[in-house]
Nucleic acid binder design. Structure first.
Length: 581
RNA sequence: GCCCCGGUAGCUCAGUUGGAUAGAGCACAAAAUUCCUAAUUUUGGGGUCAGAGGUUCGAAUCCUCUUCGGGGCACCA
């Protein structure tokens, strides 16, 4: 709907020779907003105020000049120059009717931007280490990423989502040894879990599933346990323990158990996310980068470009040359590659696969990591601006005003699965994205569980269910609904609340584009709440199923289009739209 | 010490990227149902936009400083 104003303004400006510069449509679009106050019309543009300075003109005069040049348009009732130089646009109601008609037709509810389609995006998110179940923090990433993906797709982008599986490196060995220790304990061997090992219940579950039994002669506890005090040197202790184990049971058997453990955890994560309605187009294995020789190839290329040097027995990447605050190690003294090494290659790989923009959704505690990944991209010959990092802040759970403790170390943290079971997928999805991602989230468990109007999810879903119920009543009362008749009688909808509802419906597409542009799914959530409010308010004031056929069909048309918008909006957020509650 | 995010009504938060008189929900006070789902609606009070300076026609929004809260500054991931 905003397009009407954008085009009109553009047509007007084109006629003014002095202003006709290289302004594109998106510039005009940026100057136009919905009015906050209906006494200012439907839309307002501050274009005259913005251009006044560079043209050295009085903004009001300029606004009047533009006004004189705007051609007649059968959607625009009148244009006013107001205040310091705003241009206020008043639309005919028919413009809103056209919008309702479009929504009722079976086409897409919103018009995608065709230019976006050639833009390939790769959205990477969650990417939690496969060393344990997902917790409530990952849940926020999952909900945010999945919603963002849906929104970007809805406005026209070609977008794929990916989960990066950190399936190589030291932490996988630690996972494996934790499982092995558990297996040994089940055989009544006198070994204790290293302090740096994974302590959670799930380790037990994995060991039960693997159910491996070691031979008496291959495990000699005395040879297994390092001669160091675990409490003094946790890292050294566990590394030594891993080494001993590999030697005693053979690296082959160790890797076999590691693979089994990884597969079990990965499966659990995949099931968890899929039950949560979070689907990925691909699961990218970190380990595959090494296996396919991509890491070596990239390192050689960096070496050739003189981005690497040796110092203190390690190999360093000259990140400072490319904007990072310090140089970073890519190969450690012990010859192991760092996590960052894989990440340079992984991001390079993403670009090589043909993605224009890479969106990474990271925890806010990873912000210090951005500069080095960007440096890595530059070094591999890409533009670091192609990487867009969205940071997500932490989640705290509150139950009746009391903050719930959460500790990863003890393994007693609240999992995503527990949360989903507690409050349900719908409430979890909605609450996770209800707030801006860069804001700390206080997740109110009691509110999420409550089935009252205080709970925004139920409030919105209830609006949908009410409309569904009205449609059922139509049939039960054997009333006929004629959509064409409804559309041609939309002009009968003249009450303030009816107009308000039509205005809200017409904003949907603008909200989606804004939400996509700002990568802010929470705007959509806020909008849906407002829309539901407009409907409830209208529903309370007017009866839809009245005897007057023309007005009834018009009202049903309005209700059905509201239902369609709510339903699509909720589905983009991964929330269901029940027909009865 | 350096870097990132945040501070808006009693509480939880929006604020369309610099616009006109700063908005919701909850809580509080009062009202509405012979009628399509009361899981609803209507009305009301409530603000030094953390503080101070600056930029300009115009600042919650941009810049500088101060302050408070969270996070980050590895040959961990």
């Amino acid at each position: 709907m905003k397009k009407i104003i954008v085009k009109a303004l553009h047509a007007g400006i084109k006629k003014l020779p002095k202003i006709n510069k290289a302004y594109d449509l998106s510039f005009f679009s940026e100057t136009i907003e919905r009015t906050r106050d209906s006494s200012h019309g439907d839309f307002t543009s501050n274009i005259a105020l913005r251009l006044a300075k560079s043209l050295k003109k009085n903004p009001r005069e300029l606004a009047n000049e533009i006004f004189d040049c705007i051609p007649k348009n059968n959607s625009i009732k009148k244009i006013e120059v107001a205040g310091p130089g705003f241009m206020n646009f008043y639309l005919y109601d028919s413009a809103y009717h056209t919008e309702i008609e479009r929504i009722l037709s079976n086409k897409d509810l919103i018009e995608k931007n065709k230019d976006f389609k050639k833009h390939k995006l790769l959205l990477e998110f969650v990417s939690a280490n496969p060393t344990g179940p997902l917790h409530i923090g990952h849940g926020r990433h999952a909900a945010f990423g999945a919603s963002l993906r849906n929104i970007l797709e809805a406005v026209g982008y070609d977008v794929k989502s990916e989960y990066y599986v950190n399936d190589s490196g030291r932490q996988m060995d630690i996972l494996c040894i934790s499982v092995i220790i558990h297996l040994l304990q089940r055989e009544n061997q006198r070994v204790s879990m290293p302090l740096a090992g994974y302590q959670g219940q799930y380790i037990k579950t994995i060991s039960l599933a693997i159910d491996h039994k070691f031979n008496e002669d291959e495990i000699k506890i005395k040879e297994l346990i390092p001669k160091i005090d675990d409490r003094d040197n946790q890292d050294q202790y566990i590394d030594c323990l891993i080494e001993n184990t590999k030697r005693l049971i053979s690296a082959k058997k160790f890797n076999q158990i590691k693979k089994q453990s990884l597969d079990l955890i990965k499966k659990d994560i995949q099931d968890d996310l899929s039950e949560f309605g979070v689907l990925f187009d691909s699961w990218f294995s970190e380990e595959s980068l090494d296996r396919n020789g991509e890491i070596d190839k990239a390192l050689k290329s960096l070496m050739k470009k003189n981005y690497l040097y040796e110092q203190d027995g390690a190999t360093w990447f000259k990140a400072t040359d490319l904007g990072d605050e310090k140089d970073r190690v890519v190969i450690r003294k012990n010859q192991n590659k760092t996590y960052f090494t894989s990440d340079i290659v992984y991001h390079h790989n993403k670009k090589e696969r043909g993605f224009d923009t890479l969106i990474d959704i990271l925890g806010s505690d990873h912000h210090g990591y951005i500069a080095r990944v960007k440096a890595g991209l530059e070094a591999m010959g890409h533009n670091s601006d192609d990487l867009d990092v969205q940071l997500v802040q932490f989640v705290s759970l509150y139950e009746n005003g009391v903050k719930q403790a959460m500790s990863t170390r003890s393994g007693e943290f609240i999992t995503l699965r527990q949360l989903r079971e507690e409050v349900g997928n719908d409430a979890a999805r909605f609450f996770y994205i209800m707030r801006s991602n860069e804001q700390h989230l206080d997740f109110d468990l009691a509110l999420a569980k409550s089935k009252t109007s205080e709970n925004p999810v139920y409030y919105i879903q209830y609006a949908h269910a009410r409309i569904a119920s009205v449609i059922n009543q139509l049939n039960e009362k054997s009333l006929k609904y004629d959509q064409k008749n409804g559309i041609s009688n939309l002009k009968l909808l003249t009450s303030e609340k009816e107009r308000q509802l039509m205005v809200s419906i017409s904003r949907f597409s603008e909200i989606l584009f804004l939400s996509a542009k700002n990568k802010a799914p929470h705007s959509l959530a806020q909008y849906l709440r407002d829309l539901a409010n407009d409907f409830h308010s209208y529903y309370n004031e007017s009866i839809i199923l009245i005897d007057d056929h023309a007005l009834r069909d018009a009202r049903v048309s309005l209700a059905i289009s509201t239902k369609k918008v709510i339903s699509m909006g909720l589905s983009l957020l991964g929330v269901s739209s029940p027909s009865s509650m």
